[in-house]
């Protein structure tokens, strides 16, 4: 019940985050496509949000540009390329695979391999037990009942 109330309270906020209906495309399929592109595009002003979720001025401009290009017949990749050309890879919330991002993706694996290497090296070194001192030997003999 409480959850439902919260959801009801949050709903108008979500509606506000979406932008003016006049900016939406009349064709629902095209609008859905525009939104799916926009959800993958970073708002450069708020940086943690996609332009579909952002109220920033620039985000609105970029949403309009996506819709204009879409209506002009550009495919999704071309539209993403258009934005990437101007704002760099950072504008894409899902960074493309390149040498730099490849290293980033590989870091957990590299760290794991490094850890395994360290463990193996540690295991390989067998620390020889220090020989007993005369005192220890005497005590041992005493305990084991030999005198």
């Amino acid at each position: 019940m409480r959850r439902l109330v919260f959801a009801a309270l949050l709903a108008p906020g979500l509606a506000l985050a979406a932008f003016l209906p006049s900016d939406r495309l009349a064709d629902p399929a095209a609008e859905e496509r525009a939104q799916s592109i926009g959800r993958e595009v970073r708002c450069m002003v708020c940086q943690g949000q996609s332009i579909e979720d952002s109220d920033a001025d620039l985000a609105r401009d970029l949403r309009r540009i996506i819709r204009e290009r879409l209506q002009a017949g550009d495919d999704d990749g071309t539209i993403r390329g258009y934005l990437q050309n101007r704002y760099g890879d950072f504008i894409l919330l899902r960074p493309p695979f390149s040498l730099a991002t490849g290293l980033l993706w590989a870091t957990p694996l590299l760290a794991l391999l490094f850890g395994l290497f360290l463990i193996r090296r540690r295991r390989a070194v067998v620390v020889p037990a220090a020989p007993l001192t005369a005192e220890e030997r005497a005590r041992l003999d005493q305990l084991s009942g030999q005198s």
């Binding site: 450069m44 001025d57 620039l58 401009d61 101007r86 704002y87």
Partner: peptide, 13 residues
Amino acid sequence: PPGRVAIDWGVYG
């Protein structure tokens, strides 16, 4: 005024 050229330059603010 529309800020379109700024977008072409990659201006974000």
